[in-house]
């Protein structure tokens, strides 16, 4: 055990426990909602949509949509962001950003339906739409994060004999990590919301409960869907926050 300065307290046990309070609250809300649907008197339509198995399956689908699209966003946005901030590629930055902005500015429903018309209904079409829609925060934050790294640090890195990729790996990316991670967190939350719309093109997910609720005029189904989506968004945002704190390098703030 080494002595650390007061300015750098490690997250203690007390704080770790305190951190768990919000997600437990979210889960409690979800449990109450689902519990109610299990004891309340339901008609046959409601019964079909609100069995535990059906809810679990929709939730799982939703998480799949979010997970796969987010991983794809990372695979595209990180390399692209790095590439666009290299000196030789700076000229391409405005064009790429405009293109990505376009994806985000298109109404999500419109984009998904359009893609479904062009391609076909299904999981991967929904994924493409989700990626197009949530690419921007991660890409932009990657670029901003890398661009705000003090050039003197890059210079110091090169000056002591690090290669360009060495400086990128050991200096630029760690220094940009907090901003990049907050972009990823935004992408995640955006994906949870947008994935609800995937139900329009039959890709499942919790959005299915909402469309069913609306089309069959069953408020309970609609409300259950909304609550579960909200809880999922909050949980994922919380997870993102935890990841930000764990992954961001120490010593920065």
């Amino acid at each position: 055990m080494t002595v650390t300065t007061e300015a750098m307290p490690e997250p203690g046990v007390g704080r770790a426990a305190g951190m768990l309070v919000p997600p437990l609250c979210y889960l409690a809300v979800a449990a109450v909602m689902v519990g109610y649907t299990q004891v309340a008197p339901l008609d046959s339509i409601e019964q079909r949509s609100l069995t535990l198995g059906f809810l679990a399956q929709r939730t799982l689908e939703h998480i799949q949509l979010v997970a796969v699209s987010t991983v794809l966003v990372l695979l595209v946005a990180l390399p692209l962001g790095i590439l666009l901030t290299r000196r030789a590629m700076r000229w391409a930055t405005p064009g790429v950003l405009a293109l990505v902005n376009l994806g985000q500015a298109t109404p999500a429903v419109g984009l998904i339906v359009l893609l479904a018309v062009i391609f076909q209904i299904g999981f991967w079409t929904a994924i493409v739409a989700l990626v197009a829609y949530s690419l921007l925060p991660t890409l932009r934050n990657t670029m901003v994060g890398l661009e705000q790294v003090d050039p003197a640090l890059v210079d110091a890195g090169r000056g002591i004999g690090m290669s360009a990729t060495g400086v990128l790996r050991h200096v630029e990316l760690p220094m940009a990590a907090p901003i990049i991670l907050s972009g990823v967190r935004t992408t995640l939350v955006l994906n949870v919301g947008t994935a609800s719309i995937a139900a329009f093109i039959g890709s499942g997910g919790l959005g299915d409960l909402i469309t069913t609720g609306v089309s069959t005029q069953r408020t309970l189904i609609l409300v259950t869907g909304c609550v579960l989506i909200a809880v999922l968004a909050l949980l994922i945002d919380w997870l993102g926050g935890v990841a930000e704190r764990l992954l961001a390098p120490k010593g920065l703030s």
Partner: peptide
């Protein structure tokens, strides 16, 4: 190589 303000990497001990 030593520069003004030292140019230490803030995220490293």
């Amino acid at each position: 190589y030593v520069i003004q303000q030292a140019g230490l990497f803030p995220h490293m001990t």
